[in-house]
Amino acid sequence: MTSRSKEKIAFAILTLTTILVTMPVILIVATIVKQGIGAINIEFLTTFPRNGMREGGIYPAIFGTLCLVAGAVVFAVPLGVGAAIYLNEYAGENLLTRLIRLAIINLAGVPSVVYGLFGMGLFVIFLNFGASILAGSLTLAVMNLPVIITASKEALSAVPQPFREVSLSLGASRWQTVRHIVLPNAVPGILTGIILEVSRAAGETAPILFTVAAFYLPGLPSSVFNQVMALPMHLFAISTQIPNISLETRYGTALVLLGLVFLVNSFAIVMRAILRRRRKW
């Protein structure tokens, strides 16, 4: 066989795998859109569920998920980026930092239900936050930390070393170097990590199951110590716990969850593109 025809076969196989990888995504999105689009209207998005959640809208679940995602970002981003800065810019290479890195990698592999139980044990019971937005956000934040730390660390170490040298040689302190030179150049990469984690925080059910999510609430929360409804939990509830709900409502809920994640992601991707264009090396 000539190298030319080998090349053709390799190319064909690679194309096929690409198609195979994309197919499920397209199928899932297409099915949900096709089955759920009929349920989407203003009422569905802005009113409370009625008649045992069989009718009405899913507004409280949307609101709850937005609260939880915002809470998770507020806690996880400063902590995660801070840890990444420490590991990449300050800590030397020693046994302790190797252990920390190992711990982070392992944390990323912990199943989400374990985070849920951990959150219940620590935030709900031990710290006595109760099942609340605070406890749920913190649990999601802990789950998000490993990926945010890893992505931020990658982004920081991708900033060329000479920039740091020059900055230090100009009499800037380590922190000033991080603050003025390293961090601005790492923001696009850090955003990538945050994007990934926002989607996960919005979609995960297990971590919020024991820590915040309510089956049904008649009103919106009034403080961070209240429970909220959340989209993934709501979807789970109407799909398995309540008989005689139209398929359209269920798919509609899934579509809203998908759309929400898509919206948040697009926003972050646009922001990243703008920042990338501004800073080149």
Binding site: P162, I181, W281
Partner: peptide, 8 residues
């Protein structure tokens, strides 16, 4: 430095 290294 040896190579010009302005910040981006």
């Amino acid at each position: 430095f040896q190579r010009p290294n302005p910040f981006p």
